[in-house]
């Protein structure tokens, strides 16, 4: 549509066209640059999203046609589903502890690595290695080697005469081993922080140190403010990802969320309902409740961002 207007615009001089022309000049480039995204959004993404929203109001067992259920699924979730409550608690706990710790760790290492020291590329690569493993089956085996009753952690503790539990399979600690796993794979926020640090003009530091500002002061006055767009990005993305976290719990608990549902992440429960117990309608409702929750959190972050995120524009 807009492309045609561009072709007809030059030879037309009637006022009506100039309205179109003004619209084109104002909005055209933006929409043109967004064209691939629009095709993908309307062609591939939106349809399935709307389908899942529709399915959340049905009983759908995957194998026969969905039956309309009104708000049944949503009512059940909030009135009669202890596993929903349990999985929400597990996920909240995971988000609250894993996100800040992972971000702090990633930022700390990125700062350390950004000092222009020798061997920087080597360290950066080494620290990224754990993230390369992704969700490989090997992770589950490795984590048992470390956190089982006779694992490395307890071998280390036994030096001090401490007899530790089997961390990975004890309901009091199992979630913590997954939080440690999330922190251990801190590579991607670290890389993003590093890229952000590299975007801070070096001459600002030079000017500041000529004024006698200490390193500490430089961090608070230059580094952190200029890094806020990246901090903001990492915080939002890591939170969304943590809410949706699925694979670590899936591979380590073998998809069960045990012991005693202590690692029953929200999306793991959703997956069980959808593919294990043939309740795709209910699973879709779970998904949309999660979306609403994350959307409220994100909207709130964007609203407050104008007070603490520093953009150049």
């Amino acid at each position: 549509m807009t492309v045609q207007n561009v072709a007809t615009a030059p030879q037309a001089g009637v006022p009506k066209t100039s309205v179109w022309r003004r619209i084109w000049q104002q909005d055209g480039p933006g929409y043109l640059f967004l064209l691939p995204w629009f095709i993908g959004f309307f062609g591939l993404t939106l349809g399935p999203m709307i389908s899942s929203l529709y399915l959340s109001f049905t009983h759908f067992d995957l194998l026969t046609a969905p039956r309309w259920a009104g708000v049944d699924n949503y009512v059940r979730m909030f009135t009669n589903d202890p596993k929903f409550a349990a999985s929400m608690r597990v996920t909240m706990f995971f988000v609250i502890f894993s996100v800040p710790l992972k971000l702090a760790f990633a930022l700390g290492v990125a700062m350390l690595l950004n000092r222009g020291m020798k061997g920087l590329p080597l360290y950066r690569a080494l620290f990224y290695l754990p993230s390369l493993l992704g969700a490989s089956v090997a992770i589950a085996i490795l984590w048992r080697q470390i956190f089982a009753g006779d694992g490395l952690v307890n071998k280390f503790l036994s030096i001090f005469g401490i007899v530790g539990p089997s961390w990975i399979s004890n309901p009091n600690y199992s979630l913590w081993t997954l939080i440690v796993l999330a922190i251990w794979q801190f590579g991607s926020p670290m890389i993003i922080f590093l890229a952000g640090l590299r975007q801070i003009p070096q001459d600002m530091y030079e000017a500041a140190s000529l004024d006698g500002a200490s390193k500490w002061r430089q961090f608070w006055k230059i580094t952190l403010p200029l890094l806020t767009p990246v901090v903001f990005f990492n915080a939002i993305i890591q939170t969304i990802e943590a809410f949706k976290s699925f694979t670590p719990a899936f591979i380590i608990s073998g998809g069960t969320g045990n012991p005693i549902n202590s690692t029953l992440f929200y999306t793991l429960y959703l997956y069980q309902e959808a593919f294990g117990f043939f309740r795709m309608g209910y699973a879709s409702a779970l998904a949309w409740v999660l979306l609403a929750l994350v959307a409220v959190f994100t909207a709130f972050s964007f609203l407050t961002s104008k007070y603490w995120v520093h953009y150049d524009d």
Partner: peptide, 11 residues
């Protein structure tokens, strides 16, 4: 013990 049993995820 329960700790040891819970490691068994069916795999």
């Amino acid at each position: 013990s329960p700790d040891e049993q819970a490691i068994d995820t069916g795999v």
